[in-house]
Design a protein around this nucleic acid. Structure first.
Length: 683
RNA sequence: GGCGAGAUAGCUCAGCUGGCUAGAGCAUACGGUUCAUACCCGUAGUGUCGAGGGUUCAAGUCCCCCUCUCGCUACCA
């Protein structure tokens, strides 16, 4: 039965580095939905890929001395390998460096320009050279750059802007009339209240500060903004053409049924992307789901500690399906999920080994032991209607499909899996209720025993069929051991729709022979042993990276350690070159922190009293979340002292305390390497 | 600072528009069973439902206020 097309996408992965398990989670989630829909009778098209442009990548490539293309080829290959190792069934892996994609992005940019949605930067007088930023009139503070407080000047570098405001009303209307458009719904309010209702700013959609991007074909100094480039993959990948020559495939698949993305990029997908589509005159995707994150331990995954968990590691330890099970089952719908080795072992043992693996194993063992592996449906105890336990099991059998299906429609994948395991647990209970070993001792009950084992085999196959989208390999192994094909979803759906328990209870071929030698599906893991192996693995990894144990434990402390494989370099978008004279205008001095206190009601601000030479001054700095006030008192810090004073949160701030920040949001205040008196010039 | 979400058993959470002795899973304890991967099944729990006030015959569920946590955003010179 064909229920129509279903086009699902993941976000395309940025090729700036190797993704960890938290990054890889998304493709598994998308895959489980794609496989489920496919098996449920939809004509599914599942697209994923890589986002390969931008200055960050240009710089990375430069650093290791290869061309950007060579660099992204390597990383994209690695990302694709990881997707494959997770047994994901994508139909297309698009790369934003693909020719057809680049060509469409250029055409789309031109089209926007021709129809007046994109205009060339007309912001002369509103460009801040040091910040290399354009500002709209409304963004200025006291007529000056909101970033640095300096005068803004005529544009030195032109840029293209997209008129977001033109489509804002239509987007607001669409979001309000399509409550399912943004999932979870809490995100809808955030987008509305923070961006749409206050008024959308025009978006700068070209860059001139680097070259690793898709060139604007009618103005070669510019490359297309990475988000306009990246978002376009969803239509370019299925054959969209801006000149009206879109393929049949595109006409069939678009609009997408689901864009599955991380919660951090919801804004781009629910505001900019729909507006780009409106400007193209194309329909909007039906649904955008910003999934939560899978976190390691208590914090966001960070490579700085050298203990990052990668999909490869987990697959090595537990096998691909256990990893899929874990990330899918452990991830709540709206809150972030957590992964640790301990939790992984616990799920592996209690759910996979004990409940599922053992059920299959004990059932097959009994069939072999009592009937030489032959499973016959004698229906004894069933037709008589005296066996309530059978009726209850059959009811669950008939019902589970619709329960799982409902959860999947709501994108509650974790809950869907829980429903399937409820069936396995019910089956284990059924064994206890029927006590096959007792029946086996009574020759007159042999037919009842056969029926019990048939019912179990049947239940296992129904469960395995439902499980296949989530754990494809395991489902196949079960089918192989049970030596029979799965019941189709269409059959399960029919049973559920009709409430036909009789039908649901006879889906396994009667008289079938199961395997003689059942194999363990999931071996129980010993936590202590696993942890020992894990520690060893990370120790080796750190050693290879030149990071010591101490560094690993105190990664926020300063370290002069050599760059290692696990160190995450920070590549910034380069600012315009400055002259020595520009530099000389800045006065940096050593300052002594006399006092430091939290600014009440501010999440980020600390108020400092700083001794600079013989003078004192008050400086506010937004580093509250990184330091406790008392930690900083008495420290000597680097201060930009001739910065124009500025009022922040009602208090004057006279200068700037300098810190270093990495991409994971860690921050360190700059201090002199040896003693220096307060006021000493830094030059 | 603005907007929003949340605070329920040791842990992770479910409890819709207020209604009977507040639930599930995991972990714990005890009992049963032996087909099976020392597994499975059952039973038992404890909870001031964040603090305080209010509305109501009745509130975890509504209102007010307080504390804390979280998300987005602004700020972070």
């Amino acid at each position: 039965m064909n229920k129509g097309k279903y086009y699902i996408t993941t976000a395309i992965a940025y090729t700036s580095g190797t993704p960890h398990i938290g990054n890889s989670y998304e493709i598994v989630l998308a895959d489980s939905i794609a496989r489920f829909k496919r098996k449920d009778g939809y004509d599914v098209y599942f697209q994923t890929g890589t986002d390969e442009h931008g200055q960050k990548i240009e710089l990375k490539a430069q650093e290791i001395g290869v061309t950007p293309k060579a660099y992204v080829d390597k990383v994209a290959g690695e990302i694709r390998r990881i997707c494959d190792s997770l047994d994901t069934s994508y139909d297309k892996f698009i790369r934003t460096t693909d020719d057809f994609h680049e060509k469409q992005v250029q055409k789309i940019f031109k089209k926007f320009y021709d129809q007046g949605d994109i205009y060339k930067g007309a912001y002369e007088g509103l460009y801040c050279t040091p910040c290399e930023s354009f500002w709209t009139e409304s963004q200025l503070v006291d007529g000056k750059c909101p970033d640095c407080g300096r005068e803004v000047k005529p544009a030195k570098e032109e840029a293209y802007f997209f008129k977001m405001s033109k489509y804002a009303d239509r987007l607001i209307e669409h979001i309000n009339t399509h409550p399912e458009f943004i999932q979870p719904v809490s995100r809808k309010n955030e987008m509305m209240n923070n961006f749409l209702l206050p008024g959308l700013q025009d978006l700068c959609v070209s860059r001139t500060s680097f070259t690793w991007g898709i060139p604007v074909d009618f103005d070669s100094k510019h490359v297309v903004y990475v988000w306009l480039d990246a978002l376009t993959n969803y239509i370019s990948g299925i054959g969209y053409d801006a000149d009206g020559e879109s393929t049949e495939q595109y006409k069939k698949l678009w609009p997408a049924d689901l864009h599955l993305i991380g919660k951090d990029i919801i804004r781009f997908h629910t505001i900019y992307w729909p507006i780009f589509l409106m400007a193209l005159g194309e329909p909007l995707p039906k649904q955008i789901f910003g999934h939560p994150w899978l976190l390691q331990n208590d914090g966001k995954m960070s490579k700085s500690k050298g203990n990052t968990i990668y999909a490869d590691d987990l697959i090595d330890f537990f096998g691909v399906d256990a990893v899929r099970y874990f990330v899918l089952h452990e991830m709540p719908f709206e809150n972030d999920g957590m992964i640790t080795w301990e939790l992984m072992v616990e799920r592996m043992n209690s759910d996979l080994a004990n409940v599922l693996g053992n059920l299959v194993n004990r059932t097959i063992s009994m069939s072999n032991k009592y009937f030489g592996g032959k499973v016959v449906n004698t229906k004894v105890g069933v037709d008589a209607g005296t066996e309530d336990v059978d009726a209850d099991l059959f009811h669950v059998l008939a019902d589970t499909y619709s329960r799982v299906n409902k959860k999947m429609d709501e994108l509650r994948v974790a809950d869907a899996i829980t429903e399937i395991f409820a069936l396995f647990k019910r089956s284990n209970k059924y064994i206890d209720e029927t006590m096959p070993w007792a029946l086996a001792k009574d020759e007159t009950k042999k037919d009842r025993l056969a029926a019990v084992l048939y019912n179990l085999s049947n239940a296992i196959m129904v469960g395995a069929s439902l499980l296949e989208p989530f754990m494809p390999e395991t489902a196949k192994r079960i089918a192989a051991q049970m030596n029979a094909p799965f019941p189709d979803f269409s059959v399960l759906e029919e049973c559920a729709a009709k409430g036909d328990t009789a039908m649901a209870s006879a889906l396994y071929p009667s008289g079938n022979q199961v395997t003689e030698t059942p194999k363990i599906l999931f071996a129980r893991q010993d936590l202590a042993e696993v942890m020992e192996k894990v520690d060893k693995m990370f120790a080796e990894r750190r050693a290879a990276a030149g990071v010591t144990e101490d560094d690993a434990k105190t990664s926020n402390q300063g370290t002069d350690g050599a760059a290692g494989a696990d160190e995450k370099p920070v590549d910034l978008e380069a600012k315009a070159e400055i002259t020595y004279d520009d530099f000389d205008k800045c006065q940096f001095q050593v300052g002594l922190v006399l006092s430091c206190e939290e600014v009440p009601k501010s999440k980020k601000l600390l108020k400092f009293e700083i001794q600079i030479g013989s003078a004192k001054r008050q400086i506010l700095s937004g580093i509250k979340q990184y330091y406790k006030p008392e930690e900083l008192v008495g420290k000597r810090v680097m201060v930009l002292t001739n910065l124009q004073p500025r009022e922040i949160a009602g208090m004057m701030s006279e200068g700037m305390i300098l810190s270093a920040a990495d991409e994971d949001g860690n921050l360190a205040v700059m201090t002199p390497e040896r003693f220096m008196p307060t006021g000493a010039e830094i030059c």
